[in-house]
Design a protein around this nucleic acid. Structure first.
Lengths: 218, 218
DNA sequence: CGCTTACTGTGAAAAGATTAACAGCGTTAA
DNA sequence: TTAACGCTGTTAATCTTTTCACAGTAAGCG
């Protein structure tokens, strides 16, 4: 729809963070305006970066008063697609899967986690954190009835690629993958690989080699 | 110690992924050599990138035969600091905290999760997934006895910054933060903010706006 | 009113990360 | 032994992201 071109992943992530920040500010502060440098400082960024991000989503503030909180909140929400409901499914009901169910359910009513799947018969046919659990064999049929656009993968590494393919065949166009393998998908599907092990090893690396060295900017 | 300078976060993350890949290849394949383009294809990268990464950690292969798997595995492990044990602590024993305990415990014997903390008295003074749980009030004393270098934060957003400060005061030099706030730490401490909500919103964004547009390269 | 101030919006510069390109070399095959 | 091949190591080019810097502008103040 909106024909903006090539907005970077980094920018989208930051917009998401701004949005949440603004939500909280909107609820607690009575000042209806906010400056780029205030947002920046609360998000650990530079003011220039914030201004540029807002520029790319086409939001304008007022010089001398800054940005109107309510308006910007609305604009960021609309940019992120909060205007319509998204349906999501989770595959892999291990500890991590359950934690994510708990984490995502009811956090945002427009991001509806409407089904969970697992290969273990002992884990299915019940409701966890308000989400119905199905055998993974029924993935395609269940997803077809639910119009799911986004999938979350928390299965073991060796099963992840197959699950991804099934999700894609079922019409999913975005995948958040926690399995520690690089998953390949068709070019028209977006995949975000979130590798907890390498995140931790990175922290451990820099925790060790850091007193003397600067961190290269994020 | 090793006086390499300014190795980027991205590179460290990739080295970690290479390492895991090599571990698996070393265990299953009988071919003692591997080419950069093989690693690249398995990790979803270009061969040039792999060669450059290995260059930055100072590893050399042989022309015409590629890289010796066992050697490279050793070299990557040593680069990542697997030569000595790291001790880690986790703060916040909610669903996510428990999932991470399960995820990280015994995954790598050199990354020892040796204590968990929570503010809720009902959750402490027991052992979860092999890790002893303490009241968060004892954080500093317990960490002092354990020589912990790395902390994992899975507490609610409003408590995260305070916990970070306490971790830093206790001598932690690297933090992996899952709370959805940007945490500030002194310049000599490394922090990685892993924001699940913005990761998901990013996926949802690109899942929606993607048929027509290229993803900007990671 | 006009002056001052401090902000936004944005082109241009800088920094950082990735990819291209190729010289040089070890291996293999003839 | 030599020639051909296909790899690595690395420099240079390109592409991306961030930061700088400043013109333009609205609000507040005297």
């Amino acid at each position: 729809m909106a024909a903006q071109r090539k907005i970077s992943e980094r920018t989208v992530e930051r917009i998401s963070r701004y949005r949440r920040l603004l939500e909280s500010i909107h609820a607690t502060s009575d000042n209806p305006f906010i400056y780029s440098h205030e947002i920046a400082s609360l998000c650990g960024l530079t003011a220039a970066q914030v201004r540029r991000d807002l520029m790319t989503i086409g939001f304008s503030g007022s010089s001398a008063r800054g940005y109107e909180v309510a308006e910007l909140l609305r604009s960021a929400s609309s940019f992120l697609g909060f205007s319509h409901e998204r349906r999501m499914a989770l595959v892999g009901i291990g500890y991590l899967g359950r934690a994510l169910l708990d984490y995502f359910v009811d956090r945002n009513p427009l991001f509806k986690l409407c089904a969970a799947f697992d290969a273990d018969p002992g884990k299915v046919d019940r409701v966890i954190h308000g989400v119905r659990c199905y055998p993974v064999t029924q993935l395609k049929t269940v997803l077809a009835t639910h119009q799911v656009s986004t999938g979350i993968i928390t299965v073991p590494a060796d099963a992840a690629q197959n699950i991804a393919w099934e999700l894609v065949e079922a019409g999913v166009t975005g995948i958040l993958n926690f399995a520690p393998v690089q998953i390949r998908v068709p070019a028209n599907v977006f995949i975000e690989n979130l590798d907890l092990t390498s995140a931790l090893e990175k922290v451990a690396y820099f925790a060790g080699n850091f007193s003397d060295k600067e961190r290269t900017k994020k």
